[in-house]
Design a protein around this nucleic acid. Structure first.
Length: 104
DNA sequence: CTCTTGACCATGT
DNA sequence: AACATGGCCAAGA
């Protein structure tokens, strides 16, 4: 249980939980999480967009299918997100991550 | 309840 | 490789 008194739906809760389970040094794609939860990628993205709370949700570990960071809407922008990931051991090449290597 | 919108994805041009 | 289109599901107005 990561989220306490936050008013969210069950579907969103599942998404946040799944994101929070991503191991350090790994990343996951919206679509992958979505499939795992039986929903669509848009829903996952939307869920994170509405709750950009980095302290509870490691949204910096969530990338799109290309392995590119989508966080221009998030906290410090792509730069900060990239820095955090590199700090965890994720390697970027040209603003992109090799999902076949770092994909969860 | 209907309509719009979106941190996406796959496919086609 | 970049752009356009359609599909997807859930939330909010």
């Amino acid at each position: 249980m990561i989220l306490k008194n936050m008013m969210i739906t069950d579907n969103f809760y599942k998404i946040y939980s799944e994101v929070a389970k991503i191991p350090k040094g790994k990343v996951a794609a919206y679509g992958d999480i979505a499939k795992r939860l039986g929903t669509s990628a848009r829903v996952v993205g939307n869920a994170l967009h509405k709750n950009p709370d980095q302290m509870l949700i490691p949204c910096h570990r969530v990338l799109n299918r290309k392995g590119e960071v989508a966080g221009n809407f998030a906290f410090g922008g792509g730069k900060e997100q990239r820095r955090l990931l590199e700090d965890e051991g994720v390697i970027f090449q040209k603003n992109k991550v090799d999902l076949s290597s770092f994909g969860w």
